[in-house]
């Protein structure tokens, strides 16, 4: 999509890093242009007009000016700032993981409206009073689909035969499960998916939106660890690196809540 000298777009702030004396280099995921990197000048000074609106996880209407290497952020107005997420450590860790996933899989100047809507929807759900622990896995599966790596859990990736109810090995390099006839060397497969987990993965893949995760069917808690392990391994294989935010996420979710745990 071509862009004017000055243009506007809705975007979510994925991350930033300090630059120079008081500037920040901000990575956005925008609805019209995909991932954009822009310089926000003077935002680290207190009293900057831009400052508060360009925090990570904010949805904003941003005005940008075309630049040679990076765009320049000229104005920004918050659309949603997700205060409940930001005042709860677990939710912050989860939301930053979603932001890093999006950052890893989105491309510069390549709009992906479905992924944009998914991120907005998932963060909005995470901002509600209650959220399902499966929300993150719903996001992971939909993201994989929207960037072209939808894993196969319904049939064998090799022979395309439907699978009988049983435990099957999952091959990240082939993008799905392999039936017993097609398995070459059993030690080749690092992960196996039990029947219960497979059903949950298929169910999450079929879901149109995340509403059903809270209302209606309640999903069993027991396969959560397995679902999480499989998706994380698969994502790591595709991203070709370990995502940085996962270690903090694990640390926070395993932390005992013995403190007051009130939002600071």
């Amino acid at each position: 999509m071509t862009r004017n000298r000055n243009y506007q777009t809705r975007a979510i702030v994925l991350k930033y890093r300090p630059m120079g004396e008081s500037d920040r280099l901000i990575t956005f995921f925008s609805s019209s242009f995909g991932r954009i990197t822009g310089i926000a000048r003077g935002v680290r000074r207190p009293g900057s007009r831009l400052g508060g609106s360009l925090e990570p996880l904010n949805f904003a209407q941003v005005s940008l000016a075309r630049g040679r290497l990076f765009e320049t952020v000229s104005e920004s107005v918050i659309i949603k700032s997700f205060n409940r997420i930001k005042s709860d450590l677990n939710r912050v860790a989860l939301a930053l993981y979603l932001a890093e996933l999006t950052d890893s899989f989105a491309d510069d100047w390549s709009p992906n409206q479905k992924l944009y809507d998914l991120l907005e929807l998932t963060l909005s759900s995470l901002d509600k009073v209650e959220y399902s622990e499966y929300l993150i896995h719903f996001f992971e599966l939909k993201l994989l689909k929207f960037v072209g790596y939808d894993p196969e859990f319904g049939e064998c990736v090799e022979c395309r035969e439907n699978l009988l109810p049983a435990t099957y090995p999952f091959a990240p390099d082939m993008g799905g499960v392999v039936c017993s006839d097609c398995q070459t060397d059993i030690e080749y497969y690092p992960m196996h998916i039990s029947l219960g987990t497979m059903k949950i993965l298929r169910y999450l893949q079929r879901l149109e939106d995340d509403e059903a995760l809270l209302s209606g069917v309640s999903l069993p808690q027991q396969p959560l660890a397995e679902v999480s392990n499989i998706l994380r391994n698969y994502l790591r294989f595709i991203a070709e690196r370990q995502l940085k935010s996962t270690s903090f996420l694990d640390q926070v979710t395993q932390m005992p809540l013995n403190g007051t745990n009130t939002p600071l």
Partner: peptide, 17 residues
């Protein structure tokens, strides 16, 4: 900012008791 807040919340959870 978000990172500072996250750090505060993390420390508060550690020392809250």
């Amino acid at each position: 900012n978000l990172e500072g807040e996250a750090t505060s919340m993390y420390i508060n959870r550690l020392i809250g008791d």
